[in-house]
Design a protein around this nucleic acid. Structure first.
Lengths: 260, 260
DNA sequence: GCGGCAATTTAACATGGGTGAATGTCCGCG
DNA sequence: CGCGGACATTCACCCATGTTAAATTGCCGC
């Protein structure tokens, strides 16, 4: 719910009303596996996830597939697609997905009317990049057990925060096959690991739910360190991002949008 | 030289003069291995690489280390550090490095005076994220030979563009050990692969230079596809990023920077 | 309650890449 | 000229993970 936090904290009431009305007007559903955006095509929108999970992925010519990241309810998806001519990755629904789909025209309108929106979305994009970096070290350096444990920790914390003591349960919409695609492992090997986790930490991943009785123990297995999620910093971070938007507007220096 | 392209294309002459004067006034050198920014610390600047290479990296408590990305001359490094309270990764000089170091105060001044600067730097940040994604699939899905081949292709293209025919040579400042840290492999195994590449494609990596006689052949080995580098899109991309900066400035709706 | 598909689990086997350690080569510096 | 450090190379061994394929479970619609 990172975006909720930012929106409530940073937008003025009038902006918030505009924003929420806009989301409500652009709700859309995607069935399991459907692509929201496809690599190589011209991107035309960004999305706010309402319910369900989205996955960003890339595929190689021979079919190998890597899930690059997950987008959970309340999170922003693919704002960067607005700046490129052709998408460098695809985005799809992990399972049945409900989103607000903000196209170019609507985005333009929103950014014009809500001066506090851009820094908020910028922050969300930066956060996405930070998570992406953690995935890189995860896949590059951790072994299979640590990798899977880390994924479970991350998903839990992104939904529920770090538990003060003990643990808890949360949604977990990936199949073992999808976990494998995300962590650069094989489906079979993920299965071996999940079973190990059941034995060693009593962690259960089943029926689209994740159950972590002892979070600290799982985190230790993964060397999980939540700082890359920048928890609780959303408002302050978006505020700091404002620096980018501080330009003086005397107009004389602004190039027109169509400048060749 | 991506930034050169953007700066020349997007900034007005007056802005360009300000920008270049600012860079010139903030030159700084780092010896091999020195940290520009350290994970966990409060970041106070971003950098433009003038000569030498920088590496972004992360380290685990037990010493395992992953290079997350490289920053080449003419590129922007760590703009996102301005938005977070503590850096989620470190940045260091690969070898002797010369940069322009833009601190907060100077950054503020520049952004105020140069309305076309923010979208340009935003584009550069988005590009960095795209490269990060490619590294994820590279490490997650490709085998060692493909991985190293891909790295060599990327480094070449980022410096020289895709060669029309044949190949060429360029700087290559990594040791085999650093290549290993970047690709999630062992130094020993990187050595095996480098030798294979010598035999199979006559590629030479030696003495801080990279020599690719037949780029197409190497690219085929790596399934290299340059679209993620968004070559030649810099100006158009920065232009599209302007959408984020389109807010109407009647003032009434803008929250002050210190808003709690 | 049955059929059928998706997801999980199990098993036997193959191998890419890691480990640790020794050796070789180059180059700058005193 | 010779020493020392950084980097590259080689070797023997073996384990974590991939591969293939079959069996099992669970779930949903009818």
């Amino acid at each position: 719910m990172e975006l909720g936090e930012i929106v409530n904290g940073l937008l003025t009431p009038r902006e918030r009303a505009l924003w929420e009305a806009s989301l409500a007007r652009h709700m859309r559903e995607y069935p399991k596996g459907a692509d929201l955006a496809r690599e190589g095509e011209k991107p035309g929108a960004f999305w706010i996830i309402i319910s369900g999970w989205a996955q960003k992925y890339k595929q190689m010519p021979d079919g190998r597939r890597q899930i690059l990241g997950l987008v959970l309810p309340g999170e922003l998806c693919d704002l960067d697609l607005f700046t490129v001519a052709r998408a460098d990755h695809s985005t799809a629904a992990v399972r049945r997905l409900s989103v607000a789909e903000i196209g170019r025209a609507e985005a333009q309108r929103l950014f014009e009317k809500c001066p506090n929106l851009s820094p908020a979305l910028c922050w969300a994009a930066m956060l996405g990049a930070s998570v992406q970096r953690e995935w890189t070290i995860n896949i590059g350096q951790r072994n299979a057990l640590e990798r899977v444990a880390q994924l479970l920790c991350e998903i839990y914390v992104r939904q529920c925060g770090v538990p003060v003591a003990g643990g808890g349960t949360c949604d977990f919409l990936l199949t073992q096959g999808q976990m494998a695609e995300a962590m650069g492992l094989t489906q079979v090997h993920v299965n071996r690991i999940v079973q190990q986790l059941r034995l060693r930490c009593a962690v259960e991943v089943r029926n689209m739910r994740l159950e972590i009785p002892d979070f600290a123990q799982l985190a230790a297995l993964a060397s999980f360190n939540a700082t890359y999620l920048h928890l609780g910093e959303a408002r302050a971070g978006a505020d700091r991002a404002r620096m980018l938007f501080a330009a003086e507007r005397d107009g004389s220096d602004r190039r027109s949008d169509g400048a060749a």
